[in-house]
């Protein structure tokens, strides 16, 4: 990194960081409890967003496929997880079922549809739109418009006493921990394993990876399955924190879109950064300026687009 780029990067941190810091100080002085509770809420929401968006960004980075059915995978994973959870009475099985079902769906999509449209970005994207409409309607057909709630194990539904914030839902802390573990696992998978290396090589240069004798279709299928599986996993985990209902698919699709636009498309660490920014913005918006919460998210996105069109950690492709 040369010096000018370094300075420039820090310039933005100062420009936006100092006013935010001042606001934070004001928030702490004004109402300490509210401020820290909101921060913690924002971080848990960020954890959920990261789980959804990491799969989205992984798929985009390697396959150049804007999978607009990602929200549908989230919702379908949640529904299937709920069914399995009701049937087996085990929340852990529900989580596993959500992951596996969504991963299977992703695998089928990649092998059955997207493989035949390789390189036609817009067509693939439109196909995912069509699939998301169909999936949403099929889900509505099967599960109706009711709101479903999971039945997680007893030890995680209570609340934990924390300093300053006071009582805080244990499940949200578990969610936060889960996201961190998943994030680390994803990092380990991408950085240390052979398949992860292939995926990273594919992100950098697909043609070269193929030329060096790797079965690219296999790598694509694995990536798509993992990305979709993460969405289904997030469906069950997020559905436990909130609830499952029709319309959640677009909500999480929007979240993933904004997170990866802000963080940088195709970058998992960018997704983490974007998720933290968006999650915090949403919760602080909700706490301090209700009904305008979404505007904060939008302003963040607009600022990033205006000054760093490829996202904070994105690279020009």
């Amino acid at each position: 990194m040369n010096g000018i780029a370094f300075l420039r990067r820090w310039f933005w941190v100062w420009l936006f960081g100092l006013p935010l810091l001042a606001l934070a100080v004001w928030g702490i002085v004004d109402n300490e409890r509210l401020f820290f509770a909101t921060t913690l809420n924002g971080l848990t929401l960020a954890a959920l967003y990261f789980l959804v968006a990491s799969g989205f960004t992984l798929v985009f980075g390697l396959l150049r496929n804007v999978n607009l059915a990602h929200g549908s995978l989230y919702l379908l994973g949640a529904y299937v997880g709920w069914v399995v959870g009701e049937w087996s009475d085990s929340w852990l099985l529900a989580v596993a079922a959500g992951f596996l079902f969504a991963a299977l769906m992703g695998l089928l999509l990649q092998i059955g549809v997207f493989r035949y449209m390789h390189g036609e970005d817009l067509r693939q994207t439109m196909a995912t739109i069509a699939l998301s409409i169909i999936a949403a309607d099929v889900a509505l057909w099967i599960w109706g418009g009711q709101i479903y709630q999971f039945d997680p194990p007893r030890w995680i539904i209570g609340s934990t006493a924390l300093p300053i914030v006071g009582k805080f839902a244990t499940y949200r802390l578990v969610l936060l921990a889960m996201a961190i573990v998943i994030g680390l696992a994803l990092w380990w998978f991408l950085a240390r394993t052979r398949v992860g290396m292939m995926i990273r090589a594919g992100v950098d240069d697909r043609a070269m990876l193929s030329a060096s004798g790797v079965n690219v279709q296999m790598v694509f299928a694995i990536t798509f399955a993992i990305g979709a599986g993460l969405a289904g996993f997030a469906g069950v985990v997020g559905g436990t924190a909130l609830s499952i209902a029709p319309g959640e698919d677009t909500r999480y699709l929007l979240a993933s879109l904004v997170v990866v636009i802000v963080g940088g498309m195709g970058s998992v660490s960018g997704a983490a950064l974007g998720a933290v920014l968006v999650g915090l913005a949403e919760q602080f918006g909700l706490a301090y300026a209700p009904t305008y919460g979404v505007v904060f998210t939008f302003v963040i996105m607009a600022l990033v687009l205006a000054f760093r069109p490829h996202g904070i950690l994105g690279r020009r492709t």
Binding site: V258, T291, V294
Partner: peptide, 22 residues
């Protein structure tokens, strides 16, 4: 190209949520 579709979708959804919540 493909980014346009994501960004315009995000903008449109943001307007939808704004109209719904405000």
């Amino acid at each position: 190209g493909i980014y346009t579709i994501m960004i315009t979708l995000a903008i449109g959804m943001a307007f939808f949520y704004l109209a719904q919540q405000n």
